[in-house]
Computed example of a mutant assay.
Amino acid sequence: MIAIDGVPAAKPKKTGVEWYVYELLKAMNQLQPELDVCVYTHRSLDFVLKGNWKNVVIAWPWVGWKWVWSLYLWATKPQIVFSPGDALPPYVPAKSVQTMHDLAFHWHPELFSQKRARQLERDYKRATQIATKLLAVAQQTKQDVIQAYAIDAKRITVTPLAFDHRVYNVRAVDSIEAMRTEYGLPQTYMVCVGRLDARKGQADLIRSFLLWRGDCEIDLVLIGGPGGDGYEEIHQLTQDPHIHELGWIPSEESAAIMAGACAFVFATKKEGFGIPLLEAMAVGLPVVCSDLPALREVGGDVPFYVDREDVAQWQRAFDRIMTESSDARIARGIQRASHYTWEETAQKTLRVLCSISSNNSN
């Protein structure tokens, strides 16, 4: 039996990691419903698992949930424990797999509270010590893990992320007028998607945008809920009438608002993968983003890349995105995004889990 931590998939307001776990579970279940799998959550999943897959709900507050899950693992003795979105539980009675999302806390601890940075460092270091296999969401993440913890590259498999093609596509723009009315959006705006905190860089982005904007009839729209450190500064900057803070909104609305923008801007300071970049390319947006290895891995030659610390570069990039974006560049983005699917992510993940299960049987 494979025991999976599905808590992120059961959260009502999903962002990157939560969507990854949600879509991964659905795709894996669709591909191999015959596997004996228990998905443990703190509330019921909003989709029905097929075949031999079961959703076991442990109705316990999030604080201490993993300790209670450990008791279930002790009682059931699964062959494999898989934590796709968070740390492995305190008690791991079997072989285990953990997904490594990014190491921003390791390379840039100043972007986190001391408590959070220490916790993530402990969790990731422990995973490198006890997990049978590790999954990395990007090749850059794999290299970061190897460099930070000096582990064998053969223990890590890259399983790139994806996005919901049914929601994020060129047809999303059909709903833009309804979204303009509902959220009071102007005719012309740039959009940024991501949790609002220091790591995602919205404060610097807003300052650069307002310096560049001048008297132009272009606003900046931020989609994403409050994150950790740095939100107060971002929120204060959004009091400018040309900055629109929408908070967390459902995917269908986010896709429509993205599709109605003139450009997507992404000033993140550190990224493990960058799902919003894929979503922006999929709806047909020109893109400006931080020049980070993981984003180059995802975006290829489609985005305009910027040294995120250089305000002058951002201002030049805003000019370029308004004057140099071509239909050919946008078409390349749509084509590139089309190659990233949750089915592919699930297939690669299942190969790792099944290889461990097969070794257990021998």
Results as ranks from 00 to 15, higher is better:
Trp107Gln: 12
Pro109Trp: 11
Pro109Asn: 13
Glu110Cys: 12
Leu111His: 11
Leu111Tyr: 14
Leu111Lys: 07
Phe112Cys: 01
Phe112Leu: 01
Phe112Gln: 01
Gln114Ile: 12
Gln114Ser: 12
Lys115Ile: 08
Lys115Arg: 13
Arg116His: 02
Ala117Trp: 08
Ala117Arg: 07
Arg118Glu: 14
Arg118Asp: 15
Gln119Phe: 13
Gln119Leu: 13
Gln119Trp: 11
Gln119Arg: 11
Gln119Lys: 11
Gln119Tyr: 14
Leu120Glu: 04
Leu120Arg: 02
Glu121Leu: 07
Glu121Asn: 07
Glu121Ala: 08
Glu121Ser: 08
Arg122His: 06
Arg122Lys: 09
Asp123Asn: 11
Asp123Pro: 05
Asp123Val: 10
Tyr124Trp: 02
Tyr124Ser: 08
Tyr124Gly: 03
Lys125Ile: 12
Arg126Tyr: 10
Ala127Val: 04
Ala127Ile: 01
Ala127Glu: 01
Gln129Phe: 03
Gln129Ile: 03
Gln129Glu: 13
Gln129His: 10
Ile130Phe: 09
Ile130Arg: 10
Thr132Lys: 04
Thr132Met: 03
Lys133Arg: 15
Lys133Asn: 10
Leu134Ser: 07
Leu135Trp: 06
Leu135Ala: 07
Ala136Pro: 00
Ala136Gln: 00
Ala136Tyr: 02
Ala138Pro: 04
Ala138Gln: 04
Ala138Ile: 06
Gln139Gly: 14
Gln139Pro: 06
Gln139Asn: 15
Gln140Glu: 15
Gln140His: 15
Gln140Ala: 13
Thr141Val: 14
Val145Trp: 00
Val145Cys: 00
Ile146Glu: 02
Gln147Ala: 15
Ala148Leu: 05
Ala148Pro: 05
Tyr149Phe: 09
Tyr149Leu: 00
Tyr149Met: 03
Ala150Thr: 13
Asp152Cys: 10
Ala153Leu: 01
Ala153Tyr: 00
Lys154Gln: 15
Lys154Ser: 15
Lys154Leu: 14
Arg155Phe: 08
Arg155Ile: 13
Arg155Trp: 04
Ile156Leu: 10
Ile156Thr: 09
Ile156Gly: 06
Thr157Ile: 04
